[in-house]
Design a protein around this nucleic acid. Structure first.
Lengths: 191, 191
DNA sequence: ATCCTATCTTGTCGGTGTCAGGATAAGATA
DNA sequence: TATCTTATCCTGACACCGACAAGATAGGAT
């Protein structure tokens, strides 16, 4: 039993992990900085040194979330055919996967005003996610801003509604049928 | 100058109005029951009698929000051709109109865990909104749950992204061009 | 005229974010 | 090795918040 050392060692990382767990457990609207500190076994004011304030922690967590968001898309893309359109559809599936496997983190990224997008790290990651989508749409033959908006809207709409517990009929399908429905729907955005 | 009477007269309505104003001013994540009470010129505990707790107030506000949501769609439908498909597209435009004109209220309806959907009034209004959409999809020739999901997802995705300040290129278009883009996009959901 | 009930206020409690100041430890310098 | 500097973490305090309890006031029924 090591008495807890005064210095944690990797508190920043531990706080991010604790914050994500708290978020998943109690939802973003009940997020509490003191509960995060308690979960990490540290005093209530310890997070301030690493993140400034509560929004700073959520901003850092959102940046990390965008990295996981792109990784979720990459996983699906690696399993799909290399043609641009198949890759685009796969990215859409990864979009939905992320929203369903980490719903509160998804809401932090897309439905919360607390992350500060003036933060360079977060801005860069969010922009990278947008760029990835736009590149795929262009590669798949979409030429206009309207095409990008259509694909983004339909993927985001599916993800957001499913993460919010709506569209129960779709969510309740067996995985293969569910994926097929999502593929069908996303494909409509680029006729 | 009438000294404020001990009894307000229509405090319930005044609190809902004040709550919507507070929501629009400071966002849902900074929502404060005491600020709502102060805005209505009433003590901090006065809302409890009418709404129980803060979530009760937000639940009542969400129910009212769904009525406005359907009204926003009805406005667009009244200006559109009577064919089912035109009516469906018009409803989609009204969906987006609502999200852009009342973004925080929109987030309360579709992106918040605070309203309690076990409340009969809120459940009824939310279900009416869903039913309206499903009926229109069926009237326009959509036969499956997937068709309903596709239309809902694309309209909701456009609305949510625009309300969150994303899709700036679309939001920045002049009204007529913006509407045309939205019509184009929504139409893709039902080929 | 009286009682009953709905309405609203005041006061209090535990919890929260943020700030100020102090304690501790790690690393650099000598 | 001894001291200085800096990063890290803690304690304590303040104002604000949601919720609850108890009391004050007024409207309406009897």
């Amino acid at each position: 039993m090591t008495d807890k050392p005064y210095h944690h060692g990797d508190l920043r990382h531990a706080l991010l992990t604790a914050a994500e767990a708290e978020l998943a457990a109690h939802g973003i609207e009940a997020f509490s900085l003191r509960q995060v500190a308690k979960r990490a076994g540290v005093s209530h004011a310890a997070p301030a040194h690493h993140f400034g304030d509560a929004n700073g922690l959520l901003t850092a967590l959102a940046a990390e979330g965008f990295r996981q968001f792109l990784a979720s898309q990459a996983t699906r893309e690696a399993q799909a055919a290399p043609e641009p359109r198949a890759q685009l559809i796969a990215a859409g599936l990864g979009y939905v996967d992320f929203a369903l496997s980490r719903p509160t983190l998804f809401k932090l990224l897309f439905g919360s005003a607390r992350p500060d997008y003036a933060d360079p790290d977060l801005y860069r990651e969010a922009f990278a996610a947008y760029r990835h989508l736009a590149d795929q749409v262009h590669a798949a033959g979409g030429g206009s801003q309207v095409d990008v908006a259509a694909v983004w809207a339909i993927a985001h709409g599916m993800a957001d509604l499913l993460a919010a517990g709506r569209l129960r009929e779709i969510a309740a399908l067996p995985p293969a049928a569910r994926d097929a429905a999502i593929v069908d729907i996303i494909g409509r955005a680029l006729p």
